[in-house]
């Protein structure tokens, strides 16, 4: 089994199985690199890191949106649907996380989810009306802090 090594500045040496490498044909918006892997998932599966294979210092925390937003929905444009061309049942959905010092400072980008299917990833624009770019991940903590 072939593997890819990431000399991660955040996690040290990571060994990624080749079949776990995710190709992003269009990259992530505004970030370099087209090859990433999901690493360091939390036990509950709520969070993991999308780690660049091309840039050892580039990693983004991502979340499973349904751990936090039970009624989250992704509505794709026809063009994006055509680009991904997969059975929606086989598509894994992640949202990027802006992590802060306190729980109240954690936000998820519900507007631009990352869809992963069969080794390919796309960051798409969610056309659903209720999909903020910066949604509090822990609204109870925000309310308590207010």
């Amino acid at each position: 089994m072939s593997t890819v090594i990431i000399d991660s500045s955040r996690f040290g040496t990571l060994e990624i199985a080749s079949e776990d490498v995710i190709e992003f044909p269009n990259g992530l918006i505004g970030l370099g690199g087209s090859r990433y892997a999901l690493v360091g998932a939390t036990e509950d599966g709520a969070f993991s890191w999308l780690h660049s294979i091309d840039d050892p210092s580039l990693a983004l925390p991502v979340a499973n949106p349904w751990h936090f937003f039970g009624d989250y929905a992704v509505d794709l444009s026809d063009a994006d649907s055509a680009r991904i061309t997969e059975d929606p049942a086989n598509v894994a959905v992640y949202v990027t996380v802006r992590a802060g010092a306190e729980l109240a400072d954690f936000f998820a980008n519900l507007r631009a989810p990352i869809l992963v299917s069969e080794g390919r990833g796309h960051q798409v624009i969610n056309e659903a009306p209720e999909a903020p770019v910066r949604a509090p991940l822990f609204p109870a903590a925000v309310a308590a802090a207010a």
Binding site: P61, R98, A99, N109
Partner: peptide, 23 residues
């Protein structure tokens, strides 16, 4: 807006991500 969020996510400091159960 998405570029800014991606960059902010990539700049995250914490190594430990919280558990949703904490909220």
């Amino acid at each position: 807006a998405v570029r800014d969020e991606n960059r902010a996510a990539a700049d995250a400091a914490p190594i430990e991500l919280p558990s949703p159960a904490k909220a």
